[in-house]
Design a protein around this nucleic acid. Structure first.
Lengths: 149, 149
DNA sequence: TTCCGTGCAAACCCTTTGCAAGAGT
DNA sequence: ACTCTTGCAAAGGGTTTGCACGGAA
């Protein structure tokens, strides 16, 4: 299971994949991959940019998006899309349920099984699934504490 | 269960609710409500506008959004939000799983139970859910047929 | 040397907002 | 009449695109 890998392992796996597929491994890409591998709270493009700039101040947002596009296209990361906030990126590419805090924006994984496999859905409805999203919106532990206080 | 109501019944219920809450029942609003009540495939704002304009050509998009905002605020419809397509609106305000076609954009309801009630999620994680979305993305029956042919 | 990748800036698209004119109660 | 609603137009915000320079292989 991917989520059992350590951050350095995840990073190495992403770098090895890009190299194998013929992509150039620039310093910018290594920074971006390092951040994605370490931060499992699903950072957004601007989050990533800010942190990359601590190491390399001139990096642009297009570079971040360009790299994220490649990682997406190669199936190495998963994009969580939102209309009213920035998209978020996850090195855990397995289907899972996300818990999304409406106050601080934090996204955490829910440790539970998924109902209805793609096959079950298709047998029941004749709709052919190729992706899914299961999400709960609410308040995380920390924000609940602040609201109560 | 709401989804067992007929379109006219849904429309009357929405109109009665707005009247009771003191909102003005303009012709525009009646048209918008009629469309939402009849079209259970989750139309978007532009869809609604185009169809309202067949009856009242001068109606503006802001009016559509303004009316949808009121219906949302009063809990009479549910908004499905997408970052890469227009938001969609549903008179079925119960939590349910949606099947979203990547080709034609059609959204249909999945007839299945939901796992993990808000209470169960909170007991398991200390995260307090207030809303949820469960979706499968893929190809609907009609679009699969076209792709195969 | 050859492309691919980068950075800057502008375009995009749907949604939201500002404001004056118009309509329901 | 009084206020809410409407319609036009502009703003807003994250993502995408165009293009010339620069750097990895």
């Amino acid at each position: 299971m991917i989520s059992s890998l350590s951050s350095p392992e995840i990073g190495r796996r992403l770098i090895a994949s890009l190299r194998q597929k013929g992509y150039k491994l620039t310093a910018q890409r290594r920074y971006i991959i390092a951040i994605l591998s370490r931060d499992l709270t699903h950072p957004g493009a601007m989050d990533i940019l800010s942190r990359v700039r601590k190491k390399a101040p001139q990096v642009s947002l297009s570079t971040v998006y360009y790299t994220l596009d490649i990682l997406k296209k190669e199936g190495l990361i998963k994009e969580l899309e939102f209309y009213d906030r920035d998209n978020r990126y996850d090195v855990n590419i397995e289907n899972h349920i996300n818990l999304i805090c409406r106050k601080c924006g934090r996204i955490e994984d829910f440790p539970g099984e998924l109902p209805y496999s793609y096959t079950q859905v298709q047998q029941k409805t004749d709709f052919q699934p190729m992706a899914m999203r299961y999400e709960y919106y609410g308040y995380c532990k920390d924000c609940r504490r602040k609201r109560a206080g």
